[in-house]
Design a protein around this nucleic acid. Structure first.
Lengths: 116, 116
DNA sequence: TCGTATTGTTGCGCATCCGAAACAAAGCGA
DNA sequence: TCGCTTTGTTTCGGATGCGCAACAATACGA
């Protein structure tokens, strides 16, 4: 499946979706945080701090802090790996799933009526 | 022109583009900041603080501070309106245009090879 | 000219973030 | 058991963000 976009369409799509998010008064996540959240929900588990850090090319403290914030927002969870208690397993939440589902719908809607 | 996306494709596209941005070590803009930047570059000028604030549904200080930050990043400029010196006109820069051009290419590239 | 409205900025107290380094806890090999 | 490694968190100083309210500068009508 190939989806063709022209530059102005790509930017319009991003702007419209981000704008809906802002106007909706939801979380104001940075690109780093959004990358982490989406990776947790799109890639196969398990997810660890170390894994996410290397996947994103950022340091571990960055991931730890993003988990602090988004954990407090109930967008994901943290728990110790019982098999290797050094690891922390990052899990999904119902709230996070609903948030991304709604976000995806927003992107889809804006993609549908993009200026030609 | 109608572009059809399924939810997982919408999220993958956003994730891949955001991830490239993060891994590229560029600016870590929030959705609010990105909305402002894109609005300035996509909508017809002139752009004012008040106009952007109402367009985004945020307060004026939010816009002022975003302009502080992105102005320092050279992504846009501020100058007084000579006709009504209460107004501040927000302008584009070469650097901002290049940044968004590159970003658009990234989105396009990821949209092209999206999983079916 | 004088009062009032409009525009953008700043001050306040507080929360979050950064990178780098130090750190505690857990696993593991000899 | 005793280092050594690995994992995630915390600390540090400093930057940035927030909402809300007060503010200065400018415009404009009576």
């Amino acid at each position: 499946m190939t989806i063709s976009l022209r530059p102005s369409q790509a930017l319009s799509l991003w702007r419209d979706a981000a704008l809906s998010e802002v106007k909706g008064g939801h979380h104001d996540l940075s690109m780093r945080q959004m990358s982490i959240l989406l990776t947790v929900y799109l890639d196969a588990p398990p997810h660890t701090v170390r894994g996410l850090a290397s996947r994103l090319g950022v340091t571990k403290p960055v991931v730890t802090r993003a988990l602090d914030t988004m954990g407090q927002m109930k967008l994901l969870t943290r728990r110790r790996d019982p098999r290797d208690r050094r690891n922390v397993i990052i899990g999904r939440t119902l709230e996070g799933a609903l948030y991304l589902e709604r976000f995806a719908d927003s992107v889809i809607g804006h993609a549908r009526d993009l200026p030609r």
